[in-house]
Design a binder for these strands. Structure first.
Lengths: 355, 355
DNA sequence: TTGTAGGCGTTATCAG
DNA sequence: CTGATAACGCCTACAA
């Protein structure tokens, strides 16, 4: 415990002096340079321990031109999906010895552009970016000169690396699941009219494909607009649809928050789920399993997305990634719960998905 | 758009050369030094714009001995309360021009100690720490020689700055709320047997005080243990209590996740809420308003906690905080919703709490 | 196997 | 008001 209090201000010089070696040798020890005489190494390590020395990362970064940190830009952490994603990314980065710095864009165009070109960019070696407000019309803005990996298909075929699951196929699978339980009037909550490349558009495309396969038309009355995918907007869209007297026997929420909002309204109006209306969401956030009734959903393989994105970004930073831009498609799975298939068991715990 | 591509590598030297001034003048402009001739300032700003220059933070930090970043250590972002807290802290820090670096401790003792003494500590100027696993027995570990603000009362009267709401009073208010609706058999979900200073102990104390005021005894059968405050553990505790045949007419979940887990079990067993059993949680996370039925809760003033903690930490870093350790108690409010007071209105949106 | 010199981009000091 | 110059702490040559 002796001299270990004040590590602030302890420099390699001090360590070198105590150990009776040069500063370079200390540096070598710290960086794991192999050719050091064991005795020397020991003395250096003892000195480091004694002084409580830590490398000054600012200095190292300045010298090396790297920071050892990567950025993660998401709309907001209050949205459970992004909180869980951030959790996974932080863990994945940690496994690679890298620190994550989170930025919230609030899904605002301005903030998202700032993330790409602003000041903060310089604190990190690269960026994992889940854009929401920016679209194909902003393609040019994504042509950045630093390592970046995009999450989601918002900028389809854009000028950057991509990690995403297949929104179209996953949405088709979810819709099929509803069709298989005999539903025919399936509402879509969260559509973005006029959009062509965002998650909303892609998921809606999957929905339409599944309907087409079943020989069903797409009824515009069943498309519930919701700009932001929050619980509140899901509730509002659902309410509007019911108020309009639209006949509905199932709901596909384009994410779980929307679906939970819809559930909430159904519940408030005395509509039974899944007897009268079945509900499925998307993202499989933890909430889903604890909704009443437990919400069926589509699990996007969060862990896989996170680790893949981190590794791809680090490869890009290290310069070991392929020259052309990479697009990785990850797996997904439909997770049926009571909201579509009815009570399966009277268990206390909600589902096998929760750890 | 001309020369704005390659900002990497643009230095003050370059800006100074273009603007025809010395490097120091550029520095002055950037740092808002007041005594600069307007013409000079303009030329410098034009050069900065033209080259797309950004200060190199590593260099600045090295020079200034600061990093411009603060750490935020929480158990995990998957827990909605901490995700929302992180959201608020990031925003609060942003308002002060500071970057936040999040660390997840997984509520493990080892990880929490690492946060206090590990390598990463040196990337930040200070730490906002919400400990869970460490208790009074670890008091010594909290005697750190860097700026730190603790959230929550876990280390009561410990050797560090504190920001917290009054757990005891808030819990008492929540319990009173249940008593006022005529409940008498109030289950407590999330208790930690033997604990004396943690959130569990404090909130339980408030519960006991409220019961005492109402002339009611504390029935051990109504105390539901739950180590981790997750939805799943809340569900399990509730299920155990019901399985044991304990008579219950209300539930106080020590946080919302526990309460939501309990709701889930009640729902699965056909117990009506709030008719047969009223339920209230704690934290007022966004989920609460969208539970079925909407969950009453205690709002801890998250924004206030976040901003206060950030400001206190920055004051500590700047050396402007008082010598002795500060303890700030923030406000709280009971938010009644359907889970305790029954259906109030058939609205689509769930509550005024959601933005 | 270890030491020496130099510079990464900023800001602070001190002249001018 | 502005300019030269010296650190900040580290790492990469290059020498020894």
């Amino acid at each position: 415990m002796a001299g270990r209090r004040r590590q602030a201000g302890v420099t390699m010089q001090d360590v070198a002096a105590i150990a009776g070696v040069s500063i370079k040798t200390v540096s070598n020890v710290i960086n794991g340079y192999p050719y050091i005489r064991p005795g020397t190494k020991e003395r250096v390590e003892a000195a480091i321990e004694q002084l409580g020395y830590r490398v000054n990362l600012s200095a190292r970064n300045l010298r090396q031109g790297r920071t050892g940190m990567i950025g993660l830009a998401v709309p907001e952490l209050s949205l459970p999906y992004f909180a869980e994603l951030a959790d996974s990314v932080i863990r994945a980065a940690e496994r690679r010895g890298v620190i994550v710095l989170i930025e919230q864009t609030n899904a605002s165009r301005e903030r998202e552009l700032e993330v790409l070109h602003g000041q903060r960019r310089h604190v990190t070696d690269g960026l994992i970016f889940s854009p929401l407000a920016l679209g194909t019309e902003d393609r040019a803005a994504f042509a950045v000169d630093f390592p970046m990996v995009l999450l989601g298909e918002r900028i389809f075929g854009g000028p950057a690396d991509h990690v995403t699951m297949s929104n179209v196929e996953a949405a088709r699978a979810a819709t099929r699941h509803l069709l298989e339980t005999g539903r025919r009037r399936i509402a879509l909550i969260g559509s973005h009219e006029g959009e062509t490349v965002g998650s909303a558009a892609l998921r809606q495309r999957g929905y339409e494909q599944a309907l087409a396969e079943a020989g069903l038309p797409v009824d515009p009355a069943l498309l519930g607009e919701a700009g932001l995918w929050h619980r509140s907007t899901g509730a509002e869209a659902m309410a509007r649809m019911l108020d309009a007297g639209t006949e509905v026997d199932a709901v596909f929420g384009l994410n779980d928050a929307l679906a939970i909002g819809a559930l909430h309204v159904l519940h408030a109006r005395g509509v039974t789920v899944p007897d009268e209306v079945a509900v499925i969401g998307f993202d499989d956030i933890e909430d889903a399993a604890y909704a009443s009734p437990p919400l069926s959903s589509v699990a996007p393989g969060r862990e896989q997305i996170a680790q893949t994105a981190v590794d791809l970004l680090l490869a890009r930073i290290a310069g070991t990634a392929p020259d052309e831009h990479v697009e990785v498609i990850t797996d997904f799975a439909v997770v049926p719960r009571e909201s579509t298939v009815g009570a399966v068991r009277p268990a206390a715990a909600a589902s096998p998905v929760v750890a």
